[in-house]
Design a binder for these strands. Structure first.
Lengths: 204, 204, 204, 204
DNA sequence: TATGAATGAGAATTCATTCAT
DNA sequence: AATGAATGAATTCTCATTCAT
């Protein structure tokens, strides 16, 4: 279980935090639909009804979760990009930061991937937004590092492709127990990213 | 709506085909859980109960759909690979065939991706199997074309990465209306694939 | 399977008869509710819809069955009683005829017993009527053979008791495979019946 | 309606008890299949879903009911038998206790008898077990009181016969409104039981 | 007349959400 | 504020009955 965020003065996680952590776990394990409010509150050792003191609905809880995780992801990525100078460095920095953040956050990838096609339009929209934002960032880098030799469409596709590939890799990695360390995953990811860069630069 | 397969002599699609098409659409739009049998039958203009003359359960219907689509995909991929000589050619042939098959089949990617995290283990297992099979194939190609210079882990990761990237690209493409033609998508895909190849061969 | 009643000129049972036999079997095995029209027609090798050419409804079919079987039972019982002179003889004759008829007819007892509490009032009423008619007959015998020393209430109770005991015995017997012959069952039944008679005559 | 068991402090029956009573009534009136959860909850003035807070399924509810009633029956019977010395006394004590317990419990007999042929094997099995256990007890008494002069088969048949007769008598009695008092039923029952005893002892 | 696919009303069960305590 | 029992709408699946061929 992921325990993070605010705590009560006495050091035990606050009720809200317990709920958030439990929701993260349950959503990750069961997907948006499979997750029940009862399962979440049970995992958090909290009464069912108390869920609604913290979140107006199951959907809102999920969206909250998503926003938090997404926020941390973006913060990490933007921080990493800040010290990079050219497109390729920014790209690599982004990817590495994203992977590290994912692994640190827990099953975000599964959560994200697994909810893209759920029944609730609001959920779908938000999930897509997360991935799109990241893809847009990466597309910018691709455009920059190929020096405009690739059409915007191609750059955009490359961004999406990279996001999709990472999601898959992370989804698969997050299934394993114990979680692979960033150290195990990063070289491969870097490799593949650089590969894409080289390919886009040199081919044709 | 996808209309394909057998038709009544009079040219209108058979009841079963209407059901299959409707199921395809509804599952793609709403995901496995969001799709209701009622929605499927309504879309097919068929009574609720009739669904069960054609499929023993909602799950079986979905699995059927998956198997059909997956079957066509694999058939196309394997046929394309048959005429390729080296690893790179096989890789490109596979990817191109997959893209063409996806686009021809309709929203398979969404269907597949969107069901990987549903609550039903049987569904999850089958969906994973589809993606894994494809990833395994591509990993073999990566291993071959890098002449063993990459560890099996790296080759496997590359296979997964490629599958993930394609899924994402196709997922996004299949959202657009009208559907992009294979001609519009293929060059980018080829580009990205070759990029990965070059990167894996030359880098480090 | 019980095959009885009218046949086609060529010797094979008529469609209707096949249906009746199948209904008898299926109702006996599964009870009124558990029996489905589909199961009956499948067993009779007849199309579902054809059921309704012979019976207006599942309920009517069941009632028909009941009436037929009940008719044969009563015919046998009344015939046996006709040659008996006093109450005790009539009682024994009735009981013996009923047992023989039951065993000859197949699972009537189960059918009757098993439908007394089904959801359909019409069915319940008819089933009760069958048992009540028999109980009434036997009550008359009890009254006669005790020479009026037992109140009508007692005689009636004795009739019911005897019917209930027989039903149970037969229900249990009809569960066995192969069916016990009347020869195996009759002595016990006679014994118990005579016991009741002696008891009612002599006690107190 | 049967109202028994625990009550809220304020004197109105607890929700659970209302449900149990309603289930008892509805099952008795409509049989296992005819009874719907909706009917039960409606009778108990409780929402449909609340049923499942108390019972995991309709079947479990029925089985619970059966076990409770059967438990009380056996308790009463065994208590009555404990003070009896010979076979005949035990037989009579059992029968009297059973009748009293039935009448006190409400429509158990109907419930039991009416479910012997439903489509659910688990239900059938449990119902048979109840009647068989009682029959076995009585068969032992018959064997004892005839001093081994009757074969085990005959004793067993006598036990079944007695159970069947009682079921019928009680079924019929429980249909009447108002319920006959034990005082009205017991003499007849005793009479019939003693009759069976005398018959089995003296005849042939 | 026979067929069996089609129909649709209902049944059991689940679960997000509410609310009395 | 916290609790967890209660609610009832929604969902999957069954099956008696109808009807086009």
């Amino acid at each position: 279980m992921v325990v993070s965020g605010m705590q009560s003065p006495n050091g035990s996680p606050s009720r809200r935090q317990r709920l958030v952590d439990a929701a993260h776990d349950v959503f990750s394990e069961s997907g948006y639909d499979g997750a029940t409010v009862a399962a979440i509150t049970a995992r958090a050792n909290i009464a069912t009804g108390s869920f609604y003191r913290y979140f107006p609905s199951k959907q809102a809880c999920f969206l909250d979760l998503l926003d938090t995780l997404y926020g941390e992801l973006m913060r990490a990525v933007l921080a990493a990009r800040a010290v990079a100078t050219d497109g390729e460095a920014k790209l690599l920095a982004s990817v590495e930061a994203a992977v590290a953040s994912f692994l640190a956050q827990g099953p975000l990838a599964r959560l994200v991937a697994g909810s893209r096609h759920g029944p609730e339009p609001a959920v779908r929209a938000r999930v897509e937004a997360v991935a799109n934002e990241m893809a847009r960032l990466l597309a910018k880098d691709f455009a920059e590092l190929t020096d405009g030799q690739r059409s915007p469409t191609e750059a955009h596709a490359a961004g999406q492709f990279l996001v999709g590939g990472l999601e898959k890799l992370l989804d698969s990695a997050l299934t394993q127990d114990p979680l692979p360390s960033p150290g195990a995953l990063l070289p491969v990811v870097r490799q593949l990213t650089v590969g894409m860069v080289v390919g886009l630069r040199d081919v044709r």
